[in-house]
Amino acid sequence: MGDDAFARIRNGTPHRFPMLLIDTVEHLSPGTGRASKQVSANEVLFERFGDAPPALPSCLLVDALGQVAILLLKGPDGEAPSVWYLGGIEAMHFHAPIPAGGVLRMEANILKRWRTTARVEVKAWLESGPAADGVMVLSQRGSKSDESR
């Protein structure tokens, strides 16, 4: 990954190792964003699962989708002085496990945005087909309007 691509991710989300779950930003424009994650068998997050076949836990899949949504909400330059938090999940459906060795593709689309709240549709898929989809509600902190209160 080039320095510019890594800076885009690093500036766009507050997450860091081992919780940064985005490897590549494929597309980021107003209203929609796409990113991917290479799921490796030797990741730290798989150490707790013993002899079970390594697969990305669904809670981390939700976190990864949330990170794509955050990148989208912060915009292409990632310079907005705000932090977005998961406020709720309206719906989330899991269709297939994310095995080690797979490439997870993720997409986020803004459905509606208020001043400090957004409803975002999220989707994840593998080459073999859909992995998950749902709707998240995110809430913002650190905006100039919040600082003046």
Rank of each mutant, 00 (worst) to 15 (best):
M92I: 15
L71T: 09
F49H: 15
E47F: 10
W84M: 09
E43M: 09
E43K: 01
W84G: 07
L61C: 02
G78K: 00
L72W: 05
A80T: 10
F94T: 07
D77C: 04
I70G: 03
L65M: 14
E90K: 10
F46V: 05
P76E: 09
P81R: 05
L73N: 06
G50K: 00
A80H: 02
A91L: 15
L45C: 08
V83I: 15
D63K: 12
L71V: 05
A52D: 14
F46A: 06
F94H: 05
P57D: 01
L61M: 10
K74Q: 07
L45Y: 15
I89Y: 00
P54F: 04
F46I: 10
R48I: 00
G75Q: 00
N42C: 08
G66R: 04
G50Q: 05
L86N: 03
L56E: 04
A69K: 02
S40I: 10
G87S: 07
L45G: 05
G78R: 09
G78C: 04
L45I: 09
Y85E: 06
K74A: 06
P54R: 02
V44W: 15
N42V: 08
S82T: 14
L61T: 04
M92A: 15
A80P: 08
S82K: 09
E79H: 13
P81S: 09
A91V: 15
A91D: 14
L71D: 03
F46Q: 07
S58R: 13
D63F: 08
H95S: 14
V68F: 03
H93C: 11
A52H: 15
P57A: 00
S82W: 01
N42L: 01
G66L: 00
H95P: 09
V68Y: 08
D63Q: 14
I89C: 13
V83P: 01
E43D: 08
P53K: 10
L86A: 03
D77N: 11
G87D: 10
L71C: 08
S58L: 12
E47A: 13
D77K: 10
S58P: 08
R48D: 12
F94N: 07
I89M: 13
Y85G: 06
L86P: 04
F46S: 09
L71N: 07
K74N: 12
E47R: 15
A64Q: 01
A80R: 14
L86H: 00
